[in-house]
Amino acid sequence: MKKLWSEIKYWVFILFFLAVLFELVASMILFRKYTPARSAALHIFSNLISKPNAEQYTYEPWLMFRLADHQSDSINISGFIRKSAPDIFIKPGSTDTLDIYFFGGNSMFGQNLSDSETIPSRFIKACEDEMLSKCVRVKNFGIPHYYSKQELMLLTSLLFKGDRPDIVIFLDGLNDFYPARMLYYDRPFFSYALQQSFEGKMLQKGRETFIDSTDQLYDDPVGITTADYNNALISKYINNIRMNARLCKAMGIKSYFFCQPVPFYKSPSSQQYKGNFKRFDYIYPELEKNRDSISNFYFLGNMSRKEKEKEKEKERERESGDYDGVNYTPAFADKIAKEIFGTIKNDLQ
């Protein structure tokens, strides 16, 4: 036996070495089939050193994208849901728990805010202050760049999966009417890249460079008058609300639609923004005028203005304090949460 081993051991070693070499080469060829990277070592190294960013997006079938999962002290995202802190109000003795889903774009998500400062978190705080008779649990489905149609599709897909909230709350306006071509052409924010991935003959050539055209979303399209464009935007927004309400009614879900405050509307500080933000001066008054004709629609677009009238002496301070760019400050998010709470309070009892 020993003799046989001494005769064949070199061949065994050589065969083993060749098998390992073959596996290495095969892996070097095939890993590219599953991982889009040129070098496996560089890919692993770059993943190790890259810091997680709360604003990284990931692909989401049918809805196109969502924020990538993220964990940190102040921002936590898992799947579609931004953490709310607290996310539940427990009324001792109550056996009923109302599930409330919040939908919206950057403002509902709480851009630049910590988990506890977002509108759904502050909504729970309002429940605590008011000592409701029922338990309330909230989920924050706000996702940056989402607009009314995308939120309708998100709610639809959640319902298809079997989710059954008691109440849904939508806060929209900014992403519907500022990067307004999304609403007009029914195309979410990153459509440009996905369109180019098909049109750029990537399947044939294998390589392409994307041309980022997101800035154009903020401008009026050519070939249509401003008035027609603005009216079309209003009509599409209202249609999304109506369809949403119809879907919710069929499912026995209560729905509320809030038109959000934006810094452009009758605000002297709006000169710093890109694109045509002046359209809000036409669209928002139209929505306010017609608010009673749309069921469960509430216009919060002039919340900043009302505040101004109340406290004129603090006007300058507040105008710069309500918004951080286009996003709400913690104090203003709290005010909006209280306003929403006040509006739907009766349905929570």
Binding site: Y34, P36, L194, M202, L203, R207
Partner: peptide, 30 residues
């Protein structure tokens, strides 16, 4: 099974690699 589309692999690569690198995007056909 995963409730995705036939071409989901293209879109996934666009988001996972294409948009982040902001440069040459190499599609892998899976």
């Amino acid at each position: 099974y995963y409730r995705q589309s036939y071409f989901s692999y293209i879109f996934r690569q666009v988001f996972e690699k294409g948009l982040k690198t902001n440069g040459k995007f190499q599609l892998v056909d899976t």
